[in-house]
């Protein structure tokens, strides 16, 4: 009985596949690209467990077991890169509420013209390239002839070299991100607020609620589901301090505060060609992110009914 119905299902499915062959053709380019350039490299992760020699190929290279993982865990760089990566991630994680506050503020602006100008201006930095943002930082913050130098000289003081200070690196990294993206990141929350039923506000007004109370009891609860979804995604990228900006802001003076996993993987792998070692560090990083994502999603599903899957 079950057998015949499942074969009936199979037949029906085969018929649907045949009828919709065009859809599979539409999927073909994207699937091919992912197979070649994302899934094929996943197979290449094996080199983390091998002594990879390009001449021997992935299959031909001898196995090395966990040698490269042990090498990383025992290396002097291990604690530095992990500490910096975790610290910068947590720091930038702490700025997570800023776009939410931003959206609540924008939603309260009543003058429509001003509101539009405000949004246009605050979204703008999002479209500037990382290289230009770092270039602007360097121009403004260079202690010799930058804006900050002039500012300190006004008060007869010597400007600190923020760009060459290991302790300041995380702040530069995080706050320039806030400057660049806080406005843009608020859009999704503004969208959530614009879907609030206006009668809710009217009812609150009739009940004598102040604007502050409306924010507290209508706006904030509206934003929580969106915030949780984005929070989960954010935790999944926890140890993914972006290579692009960290690498550009790095210099010999601040390296002890600016070497993060992604820049270290690049230097070991592509600049000094220690392929297997670099792949091992990279895999360690990816696995931690993956586990964090799944863990947070499970926790969120258990306690709040919001989850990614």
């Amino acid at each position: 009985m079950t057998n015949s119905s499942s074969s009936g299902n199979l037949q029906r499915n085969m018929a649907r596949i045949g009828r919709n062959w065009g859809l599979y053709l539409l999927l073909l380019p994207a699937v091919t690209l992912l197979l070649c350039f994302v899934y094929k490299p996943m197979y290449g992760i094996i080199i983390a467990f091998k002594d990879f020699k390009p001449a021997l190929g992935i299959m031909g290279s001898p196995w090395a077991g966990l040698k490269y993982f042990e090498k990383f865990f025992n290396s002097y760089q291990f604690s530095i890169t992990i500490r910096n990566t975790v610290y910068i991630s947590l720091y930038s994680f702490a700025t997570f509420p800023i776009p939410i506050l931003f959206a609540i503020g924008v939603n309260q602006l009543r003058a429509n013209r001003f509101k539009r100008v405000f949004q246009t201006v605050t979204y703008m930095p999002h479209f500037i390239s990382t290289i230009v943002v770092v270039g602007i930082l360097m121009i403004l913050l260079s202690p010799g002839n930058g804006l900050i130098g002039s500012l300190y000289r006004l008060f007869g003081a010597e400007a600190p070299n923020l760009l060459g200070s290991a302790g300041m690196f995380s702040s530069l990294y995080v706050w320039s991100d806030v400057w660049q993206h806080a406005g843009w990141d608020s859009i999704i929350y503004i969208a959530a607020l614009s879907s609030v039923d206006p009668s809710l506000y009217e009812a609150a007004t009739v009940d004598g609620a102040s604007r502050w109370q409306k924010i507290r009891f209508i706006d904030i609860p509206m934003l929580i589901p969106t915030a949780i979804t984005l929070l989960i995604l954010r935790v999944g990228g926890m140890l993914g301090v972006g290579f692009e900006k960290a690498y550009l802001l790095q210099n010999n003076l601040n390296i002890s505060g600016s070497e993060v996993l992604s820049t270290y993987v690049y230097k070991i792998g592509l600049l000094s060609s220690q392929y297997s070692f670099s792949a091992a560090i990279n895999l360690f990083n990816t696995l931690i992110n993956f586990v964090l994502l799944i863990a947070v999603n499970q926790i969120s599903r258990k306690y709040s009914e919001h989850s990614l899957w």
Partner: peptide, 26 residues
């Protein structure tokens, strides 16, 4: 047909990839 599997095939790449060196070699 196979929509769930195909979606997973795409979404998985958002969270997991081969990393810098294997991609470079590819």
């Amino acid at each position: 047909v196979g929509r769930r599997f195909l979606s997973l095939f795409f979404i998985f790449t958002m969270f997991f990839n081969g990393g810098l060196v294997p991609t470079f070699l590819t």
